[in-house]
């Protein structure tokens, strides 16, 4: 039996096909967010991995910002519930999840079954989100996916004092004018993100073990500095970006077996 989870995020769409609620059959990521062709594209892409048909899916559960508008879904859940279940699937020992998505940050505490016990989200502000990193990468003229490796080569972090994305953008431009090393500047940007995210995580309470999900978890520079800020190791799974879609597929399976 196959269940399909689709996470229609603000900047990317992710999909996972789960077999019998226990084995990942296929996974796909499309770097297009809600309101674009991303949702349809990721559906085709994930089905194509093992040449499956939509009819093969017993249940489809959708999450993420586009969860209300995806035609063909059997049900929808919030992305926090899905990330919690997805990370629990990948790391059953995790009790604190930090998810940095395209436009928001979430800190979640979960129990042994992956059910949410508490959560906090950022307010209406892009500070510390994936969008913040997108903006900074564009100014520095590097690919956002390369930021992690670049930041790890820093020898001296440049302090970015503004948390506001727009003001931080101005600050980064002024640092570029002062000819600072790009690696040091990127490390400073990562520190800014880490501080912002850590304050949110502290607000929710941190219980070990800690894992990160969402696309920004792939940025090793942010993860390393966040570990420093919260003074704990952070687990990152190679499927971290797919945690929401995976959790959606798990929940779809559970809905069939209620």
């Amino acid at each position: 039996m196959f269940t399909l989870g689709i996470d229609i995020g603000s900047t990317a769409c992710k999909a996972v096909i789960l077999q019998d609620g226990a084995r990942v059959e296929a996974r796909a990521v499309v770097p297009l967010g809600t309101g674009t062709s991303g949702a349809g594209d990721v559906l085709q892409k994930v089905l194509a991995v093992k040449n499956r048909q939509i009819e093969d899916m017993e249940r489809i559960l959708v999450t993420g910002y586009g969860r209300f508008t995806f035609a063909g879904a059997d049900s929808q859940k919030s992305e926090l519930s899905c990330h919690a279940r997805g990370v629990n699937f990948l790391f059953p020992s995790v009790r604190t999840i930090i998810d940095i998505g395209g436009q928001d940050i979430k800190a979640m505490r979960v129990n042994a079954k992956g059910f949410l016990e508490n959560f906090v989200m950022n307010d209406k502000c892009a500070a510390g989100t994936g969008k913040f990193l997108d903006v900074m990468a564009r100014i520095i003229n590097v690919k956002v996916n390369d930021l992690g490796e670049i930041g790890l080569k820093a020898t001296e972090e440049v302090n970015i004092s503004n948390t506001c994305t727009v003001f931080a953008e101005s600050e980064v431009i002024s640092k570029l004018s002062a000819a600072v090393r790009i690696e040091d500047l990127v490390a400073g940007i990562h520190r800014s993100v880490a501080k912002r995210v850590a304050s949110l995580a502290f607000r929710n309470g941190i219980v070990p073990e800690v894992a990160m999900s969402g696309g920004v978890a792939l940025n090793k520079g942010v993860v390393a500095l966040l570990e420093e800020e919260i003074k704990r190791n952070i687990l990152v799974h190679e499927d971290c970006q797919l945690a929401g879609a995976l959790g959606a597929a798990v929940l779809a399976y559970e809905e069939l077996h209620k």
Binding site: L80, S81, F115, E117
Partner: peptide, 9 residues
């Protein structure tokens, strides 16, 4: 999103 999550929680 927060309120839906809260209900699910």
């Amino acid at each position: 999103t927060k309120l839906q999550t809260f209900v699910e929680m």
